[in-house]
């Protein structure tokens, strides 16, 4: 029998199906005692509507793999960050035309800085590799994505924004 961890790690993200839940960093823990499995996941954003879908997919795949007692738990702490997307995940995103987030590291303590201008981030075009890209909108088709355009190949593309 395939281990519950192996099964859970292969479940795809419903909104970014090029990534597994493990790649995305939302799969926090899989524990297995006999045929009982407890999987712990964390939401990317407070209102992420995909969370219910993730629970459902995990439940289904583990049940198919023969686990009869499956519990999916949600944890809020610590809060998800794009830094938890695996290196493999970043690579897969680029390969599928989505610019990956930069690594942000831990936030400095103290007041949260106000940003009065859209940050001039260097985001490479996932299609042609050009660094000449501009942000069209900080908000894209899902909470986690911004919309950008390449000034060289002129293709629009999405970027996972750092959080």
């Amino acid at each position: 029998m395939v281990s519950a961890r192996q099964v859970a790690e292969q479940v795809l993200d419903p909104e970014l199906p090029v990534l597994t839940l493990a790649d995305l960093g939302v799969l926090r823990e899989v524990s297995e005692v006999g045929d009982r499995v407890v999987v712990t996941i964390t939401p990317t954003y407070s209102g992420c509507p995909a969370l219910d879908e993730m629970r459902s997919d995990l439940h289904e795949k583990l049940t198919e793999a023969g686990y009869r007692d499956v519990e999916i738990r949600t944890v809020l702490h610590p809060a998800w960050t794009t830094d938890w997307i695996s290196d493999d995940g970043l690579r897969k995103l680029t390969e599928h035309g989505i610019a990956p987030p930069s690594r942000i590291g831990p936030r400095a303590v103290g007041p949260i800085p106000l940003t009065l201008e859209p940050p001039k981030r260097r985001v490479s075009c996932p299609h042609c590799g050009s660094a000449r890209t501009t942000e069209l909108s900080r908000f894209g088709s899902t909470a986690c994505k911004a919309l950008r355009r390449c000034e060289d190949c002129r293709e629009p593309f999405e970027q996972i924004k750092e959080i």
Binding site: S46, T115, R138, F139, I163
Partner: peptide
């Protein structure tokens, strides 16, 4: 809930300020 909300409110505030 607050720790998660802080990340979100940060870009809400930036969006409004801009």
């Amino acid at each position: 809930v607050a720790a998660k909300g802080v990340k979100e409110l940060t870009y809400h505030r930036d969006h409004a300020a801009q």
